[in-house]
């Protein structure tokens, strides 16, 4: 994305009050307590073990740490994780302007 288009999009999001995930291709996380986590708009699994799950994102990656993690369902853009989730960490998603 060129710098200009990004700026234009940011501006339209601010003006029109649009949800950012649609416009910026950001992941959307829906979490129910620490038991269930639905991640939309991911780019695949990088690592999967019972206590860690790393997902690729359009930019950077996301690490879900916890114990007894289970992928309940997986689809091209969506993933449902269950287990005792302890932490969610973003890596390499520094804002580029």
């Amino acid at each position: 994305m060129s710098r200009f288009t990004r700026k234009l999009r940011k501006w339209s999001v601010d003006i029109l009050d649009l949800p950012q995930d649609l416009v910026f291709d950001l992941p959307r996380l829906t979490m129910v307590g620490n038991k269930q986590l639905l991640i939309e708009n991911h780019r695949g699994v990088l690592h999967f073990s019972p206590d860690q799950l790393r997902l690729a994102l359009p930019e950077g990656s996301l690490t879900v740490a916890g114990s007894r993690l289970v992928i309940k369902a997986i689809m091209p853009e969506e993933i449902l994780i269950e287990g005792d989730i302890a932490a969610i960490q973003y890596l390499g998603t520094g804002e580029k302007r």
């Binding site: 695949g44 990088l46 999967f48 019972p50 992928i71 997986i74 091209p76």
Partner: peptide
């Protein structure tokens, strides 16, 4: 294993209850 899971998602094969049991076992 991870590549396999990604392929599953791409092919839209319905799988559920994926559990990692030890290294490279699913």
């Amino acid at each position: 294993i991870e590549a396999f899971v990604n392929e599953l998602a791409r092919e839209r094969i319905e799988v559920w209850n994926l559990k990692s049991i030890g290294p490279n076992r699913l």
